[in-house]
Design a protein around this nucleic acid. Structure first.
Length: 257
DNA sequence: ATGGTCGGCAACCGA
């Protein structure tokens, strides 16, 4: 069995107690982290290695940052989505236990029509290009992370209000669809075709978590050979700890390897 | 009850 998970930590240092507790309890083989919000020199390598993980990361000051934690070493590491380099620290890929892993923190996009929104679309186009260029749909590939896009009405509270807005816009969804259509399946959706499962609740909405005003914007996408052997998937709400809750959940899946 | 999100990092930006 191979256990794979993804988690937008929103600061790996602030979330470290939750993270270490969760790793001990769940012992995933691979965990993708987004929004680590830490420069490489300050990444909490020691406690995570003591917990039994190899750590591969790319960070920057204040914003973004990604990491892959793995029981076995990550090989063929790449830290740049763009050929000219990825200053924004939103991408890390590699191979571990015979599986290619791509961990992404897709730009949030700010507002539709803004420069940041355009950059989000460009980023998704580049991600598609990266996948098409380097992988084959027959490979064992997982693309996981925070995509900042909800795909269907069932994946966001009050879809009518959000339709056409950032995170729920046709242009974002069309690019996501292209990535899916290349040969990647939303593993959680496969196991839970019904709605009302969210992975994110905006801090800014009063009592948003309690009122369940959430979004499903975190994904584990897998190629057919892995989907065939995927046992189940689930959203783990451990990160809603009483102290310092995260705005995202852990998303987990298991493969019969 | 006259307020009301987080995190980084030091004034505000980003989510």
């Amino acid at each position: 069995m191979l256990k794979f998970a993804t988690f937008n930590a929103n600061s790996v240092r602030t979330r470290l107690p939750i993270l270490l507790q969760w790793l001990e309890k769940e012992t995933p083989d691979i965990l993708c982290l987004q929004e680590t919000k830490v420069q490489d020199k300050d990444f909490p390598v020691d406690p995570l290695e003591k917990a039994g993980y190899h750590v591969t990361f790319r960070g920057q000051k204040s914003y973004n940052g990604v990491a892959i934690l793995s029981k076995s070493p990550l090989e063929d590491v790449r830290l740049d989505l763009f050929s000219q380099g990825d200053e924004q620290a939103r991408f890390v890929s590699g191979r571990v236990q015979g599986i290619s892993v791509v961990n992404v923190y897709v730009p949030q996009g700010s507002q539709v029509g803004s420069e940041k929104f355009q950059y989000k679309l460009e980023w998704l186009k580049n991600l598609l290009e990266y996948i098409v260029d380097r992988y084959n749909p027959d490979d064992s590939l997982i693309v996981a992370g925070d995509f900042n896009v909800a795909m269907e009405d069932m994946d966001v509270y009050d879809p009518e209000t959000h339709r056409g807005g950032v995170g729920f816009h046709a242009d974002e969804q069309a690019l996501m669809k292209k990535i899916f259509n290349w040969g990647l399946v939303d593993v959680f959706r496969k196991h839970f075709p019904e709605g009302n499962h969210y992975t994110f609740w905006d801090y800014r909405i009063p009592n948003g978590l309690k009122r369940n005003l959430g979004w499903r914007i975190d994904y584990i996408l897998a190629t057919a050979s892995l989907v065939e052997i995927s046992r189940t998937a689930w959203v783990d709400t451990s990160a809603r700890a009483l102290s310092k809750p995260s705005d995202h959940t852990f998303l987990v899946t298991e493969f019969n390897v």
